[in-house]
Computed example of a mutant assay.
Amino acid sequence: MLRAIAHHEQGETGMFRNILIPTDGSPLSGRALDNALNFAHEIGARATILTVMEPFHIFSADTDQLELTRAEYKTHINLVAENILSRAGQEAKTRGVDHITLKLENDDPHLAIIQIAHSQNCDLIAMASHGRRGLSAVLLGSVTSKVLTHSHIPVLVYR
C-alpha cells in the first residue's frame, strides 16, 4: 500500500486543476504515476507528465555514458524517455485523464521539476519518494527531498 504525504504552503485551499507527475520509469515511480493519475481522474484534474533526462558527461560513473558516444547516448536517453512517456500517456488515456507529456534534459532534476511546474501552471506536484538516482541520491539527497525543500507548490509524495 502506498502512503501519501502532502506538503502545503500555509493558507492554500481549493481544488487542484493541473497535477505535475514526474516519472523516471522505476517501479516506485510507476506506482506513484498510477496513484496520481487515479487522483487526477477522481478530481477531474489535468496531468502534466514529465521525465527528466541526465545530460551526457565526459567524466561519469554511469555505464551508459561510459560505453556510448555523446550522440549515441543522446539517442539512447531520448528513446528511453519516449518509452517512459508513451507508457505514462497510455495510462492517462486509459483513465480518461487529459494530459500532456514532456521531457527535459537537466543536471538538476529537482530544479527542472519545479521549473516545469511553474511554466505549466501546475498547482500540485505528485511524485514517488525516490527513484533511480543511485549512490548520488544518498550522498546529495533525493530529488524528492529537494523538491519538497524548494517548491512553493504543494507536493504529494507516494511511498
Rank of each mutant, 00 (worst) to 15 (best):
M1P: 09
L2G: 06
L2N: 12
R3F: 08
A4G: 07
E9C: 04
G11T: 02
G11N: 14
G11A: 10
E12F: 08
G14F: 12
G14I: 04
F16K: 00
R17D: 14
R17Q: 08
N18D: 08
N18C: 06
N18L: 03
N18K: 05
I19G: 03
L20K: 00
I21Y: 09
I21R: 00
P27N: 13
L28F: 12
G30H: 03
R31Y: 11
R31Q: 06
A32N: 03
L33Q: 02
A36L: 04
L37R: 00
F39S: 02
I43W: 01
G44R: 02
A47F: 04
A47V: 05
T48L: 08
L50Y: 05
L50A: 05
V52Q: 09
M53F: 05
E54F: 04
E54A: 02
F56P: 06
F56I: 09
H57G: 01
T63V: 06
D64G: 00
D64A: 04
Q65M: 08
Q65Y: 01
Q65D: 00
Q65S: 00
L66M: 04
L66A: 03
T69R: 02
T69G: 03
E72N: 01
E72W: 05
Y73D: 08
K74D: 12
T75W: 11
T75L: 11
T75D: 10
H76V: 03
H76L: 11
N78I: 02
E82A: 13
N83P: 03
I84C: 06
I84M: 09
L85I: 09
S86G: 12
R87N: 13
R87Q: 10
A88T: 15
Q90N: 15
E91I: 03
A92L: 11
A92I: 09
A92S: 11
K93T: 14
T94K: 12
R95F: 07
R95P: 12
D98Q: 15
I100C: 08
T101Y: 07
L102M: 09
E105Q: 09
N106C: 09
H110A: 14
L111Q: 13
I113A: 07
I113N: 12
I113C: 09
I116V: 14
I116G: 00
A117F: 13
N121P: 07
D123H: 05
I125L: 11
M127H: 11
S129V: 10
S129M: 11
G131N: 07
R132K: 14
R133A: 15
G134K: 13
S136T: 15
V138S: 08
V138W: 10
V138N: 07
L139F: 15
L139D: 09
L139P: 02
L140T: 04
L140K: 03
G141K: 10
S142K: 11
V143W: 12
K146E: 13
L148H: 07
T149R: 13
H150P: 03
I153W: 02
P154A: 05
V155C: 14
Y158K: 08
